[in-house]
Simulated assay, not measured.
Amino acid sequence: MKQIAILGSTGSIGQSTLSIIEKYPGRFAVASLAAGRNVEAAFEQCRRWRPQVVSMATAELADELAKRLSAEGVTGVEAVYGTEGTIRVATLPQVDFVVSAIVGVSGLEATYAAVKAGKTIGLANKEAMVAAGEILTAAAREAGVPLLPIDSEHNAVHQCMRAGTRDEIRRIWLTASGGPFRNLPLEEFSKITVEQALKHPTWVMGRRITIDSATMLNKGLEIIEACRLFNLPPSAVKVTVHPQSTVHSLVEYVDGSILAQISVTDMRLPILYAMSYPERVESDLTFDMAALGHLDFSPPDFERFPCLRLAYEAAEKGGAHSIALNAADEVAVDAFLERVIPFSSIPRTIEEVLENTSECHPATIPEVLALDRQARETAATVVRQLASRDRNSNVSA
C-alpha cells in the first residue's frame, strides 16, 4: 500500500487526490497533509483520514487546529506549520508518494526536499518546474526517483511517450482550449471584466489558473514545464488550440506517427495514473466516444495571446527569465483580480519585467527564491506605474 503525502490538501487537486484514496483503500493511504490556511477543511480531513502530520501556514493556525482536534478527541495527529512543517509532511520516512499541489512557488522547498529524500513526486504544481525545473530534474536523476506529471497535458504526454524512446520523438503538442476569448475581437480585450475572465469554457479551476488560461500564459508555463520534464528544446514543444479539450496532448514520432491521449476532463484520471504508475488501475472514468464526433485544431494567435510569445522567449533563455515570467504573472493576475489593472495589462506587466531581468541560472533553491522575490518587487512597481497611467488616461479622457 502506498503512503501518500499531499501538499495542498484543501485545494481542488488535493481534494481530488483524497477522493482517489477513498475509492482505492487497499492501494493508497494518507500519511501526511499540508493544508495551508483553511483550518475548517484541515480539521475535517484530519478527522476523516487521521494523518500522522498536518502542516498549516502559521503557528497560530496550527495551534487552532490542534485545539480543535483535541476538543474533538482526535489523537495521533501532529500539527506543524510553515515551510519547515511542509518539508516535514513531504519527507516523513513512511511516505512513498508526494502530491505537490501547492499553488505558486510556496511548495518548492518541500518538493525539492522530498526529491532529495528519495520520494516519488506527482507534480500538479507547474510553477515548481518553471522556476526550478533544472534543479529539480537534476536532483531527481541523482536520487533515482521519477517526477510524474499530474497536470493533464503533461500527464497525457507521459502516457503517449510510453510507446517509444526519447530519441524517437520529433515533437510534442500541447492542446489548449483557447479560453473564453479565442474569438473575441482584439479591440475588446481592454474591456474584459474579471467575471468574464473567470468563466472557463471547459475546466473548473482556481482563480489564478483560470485567468492564466484566458491569457494563455498557463499554456506558456506548460511549455517550459514540458521542456524540463521531457528534456526537449522549446522548438520541439508546440501548442495547438483545441476547443473541445478531449485530446489532452499528442506526441509526434520521427516516423510521422502521432499518438494522442484522450479521456474525460476530470483531474482524478491523471492523479490516479501518476499514483498507480507504472500500473494502470481500473476506474469508472469512462469516455463517451460520441464526443469525438467533431474535433477542431488550429494554431494559436500570438497577437491575441502575447503571453504565449513571452513564454517561448523565457523558455529559450531559461533560468531567471522563467522565474520572472511566473512571478510577474502572479503579481499581474492578482492586480487584475483586484481590479487594479485591466486584462490587457497582464502581458504588459510580464513583458516589462522580463525586459528588466538579467540572464542567469540559479544553482540552488534559495537562489531561485531570491530571484522570485526580486521579480515580484519589479512586477509590483510595474503594476503601480501601469495603474497610474490608466488613471491619468481616464482623467484626460
Rank of each mutant, 00 (worst) to 15 (best):
T265E: 11
P299Y: 00
V99S: 05
M205N: 01
Q159P: 14
S55L: 05
P149N: 03
A140H: 01
L292I: 04
V383M: 10
H154D: 10
D151H: 00
A363H: 13
E60C: 01
T215L: 08
E316L: 08
V247A: 06
A156D: 11
D301N: 12
D301P: 13
E303I: 13
A163Y: 14
V105Y: 09
G318N: 10
V251K: 04
A143Q: 08
K126Y: 05
S213R: 00
I211G: 06
D329H: 00
E187A: 11
G164N: 04
D390G: 04
L272H: 05
F28W: 02
E40M: 09
G133I: 02
R384P: 06
V115I: 15
A128E: 05
A140I: 00
A128K: 01
P299Q: 03
P180R: 01
Q159R: 11
T75C: 13
F181E: 08
S235Y: 11
E22L: 12
K317A: 15
D167S: 11
S213Y: 03
V247N: 03
V239H: 05
G104S: 08
V53I: 15
K199F: 04
S322V: 03
P366H: 04
A35W: 08
A59Y: 10
I135M: 07
S245E: 08
T202G: 03
A290M: 14
P270S: 04
A291H: 10
E352M: 14
A59G: 13
L136E: 01
G26D: 12
A138N: 08
L148F: 07
A113K: 05
F28A: 02
T364S: 15
S177D: 11
V39E: 10
R207Y: 11
A57L: 14
K2E: 14
D151L: 13
D296K: 02
T111G: 01
E282F: 13
I192K: 02
V74Q: 09
S190M: 14
A71N: 06
S358K: 13
L229M: 13
A214M: 01
E313A: 12
I13H: 02
H248K: 04
T17F: 07
T75G: 13
A138H: 10
L33Y: 07
P233A: 08
L371I: 06
V77E: 13
H158A: 15
T83W: 06
E351V: 11
V331Y: 02
A332R: 02
